[in-house]
Amino acid sequence: MAKSDQELPEGFRQLKTQVAGHTFEESNAEAVGLLQDSKAGCVLKPLGKPECGERELRFYESLAEAGASGDNDLLALLRGHVPRFYGPLKLVVNRRERTFLRLEDLTRSYAKPCVMDVKMGKRTWDPESSPNKRKVEEAKYVMCKQKLGLCLPGFQVYLPKEEHTQETTILRHGKDYGKSLNVEGFKQTMALFFNASTSDSKSRRAGCELLLKEVLRQLQEILAWFQRQRLLHFYASSLLICYDYSRLADPPKPLINGYHQNDDDPATWVRVKMIDFAHVYPAEQGLPDENYMFGLQSLIEVVQSILHR
């Protein structure tokens, strides 16, 4: 079955900006990727294996309930760093009923969406993993994962076709590219993704600087949350970094007092959100999630190095 021949419910289509995770496969009707409901502004993520899918659904539901009774204020704070959750939905895809999570479409308003999935932590296997699963996970992305606590399952980025031109081309890479990266290659790829190497015009350089500063601000907010929380440990979870390339050449201008007007707020075209919660567990012995924070601090350092080079 060709990807274009997938049997999807009316009003839904495959998500074009999906860069990682399970996808639709031409040779396997059982393989289902992310869907998009553009009318409702939602992305639909299929639940994975029963135990993983239920765990991820419970996580989103616990976030939705947090703070309602004054409890779990830390969980309520986390909601701002996670795509909005609109509940589960059953759909028939390829003649089989499946359950999906309805999530906010982070790039819905973007003219030229650049998207990167960065998996966090040296350890990507959860406490219930079999010895074989641990071995498989530890063999993936070894060069970057052990030194940075980061790996790169996939990304897409718009790049200028030539210097001093408005024409663009799209570069897409998946997990095979990410697995080939060493530390220096990872840093170079991050600079490429942020268009830090292609900012030839003054306005695009200004836009790139604003982009990097906004990414850093959001990363540091997520780190501040992790430094406080002792509730959960996140395994094989990712950060999704998104921005609209079309805003790079026309960055919002700061006001005299240093604030942006609402329409010019970089948070409207730059988003860093936590995703993938199939392997979230209660914190062991009430300890901080050092594994996730190690990767997060590495990512902050990489982005800072690009900004200040």
Rank of each mutant, 00 (worst) to 15 (best):
D276K: 01
L223N: 09
N291R: 02
V43C: 12
V19H: 03
S4F: 07
L152W: 06
F294W: 03
P113V: 08
K161F: 03
G33P: 03
S130Q: 05
P46H: 06
K119V: 08
Y281L: 05
T169W: 00
S38V: 13
E137F: 01
Q166T: 15
V183D: 04
E97L: 06
L77N: 10
P282H: 01
E10N: 12
L103C: 07
R123H: 03
R13T: 15
V183S: 00
A29V: 14
S4I: 13
L255E: 12
K90R: 12
G87C: 06
E65W: 00
T189Y: 02
S246E: 14
L255R: 07
V303D: 07
H260R: 01
K175F: 02
A66Y: 03
L74T: 09
H164V: 12
M1V: 15
E65H: 02
F59E: 12
W125N: 12
E137W: 00
F294H: 09
A76Q: 12
Q261M: 10
D117Y: 06
E54L: 14
A283T: 11
E163Q: 10
C144V: 10
T23D: 14
K112L: 12
H22R: 09
K161C: 06
N28C: 07
P50D: 15
E128N: 09
N28Q: 10
R247W: 09
L35W: 02
M116Q: 05
H279N: 05
A249C: 11
V19P: 06
E163H: 03
D105M: 08
G33I: 13
R108A: 14
Q6F: 09
R95N: 15
Y235N: 05
V302W: 00
H22Q: 13
D265F: 02
D176I: 09
Y292I: 05
L231I: 14
Y245R: 00
K16E: 15
T165E: 14
R205A: 14
L47Y: 07
K122G: 11
L159F: 01
F24K: 02
V118A: 05
M143F: 05
L101C: 11
L91G: 04
G149W: 04
Y245D: 15
I306G: 06
Q220F: 02
V183L: 03
W225R: 04
K147G: 01
S38N: 06
L210S: 06
D73T: 15
L181F: 03
H81W: 05
F194G: 08
Y259P: 00
I241P: 00
Y235C: 08
M293Y: 00
H279I: 13
P131A: 10
V302G: 05
S237I: 11
W125I: 07
C151E: 05
N28W: 01
A31K: 10
E26G: 08
P83I: 12
Q297F: 00
S305A: 15
S199P: 01
L34C: 08
V302I: 14
D263M: 08
E56G: 07
A66R: 00
E10Q: 13
Q285V: 11
K3H: 04
D276P: 07
C42K: 03
N195D: 13
E54M: 13
N182C: 10
D126N: 12
L106E: 05
R134S: 11
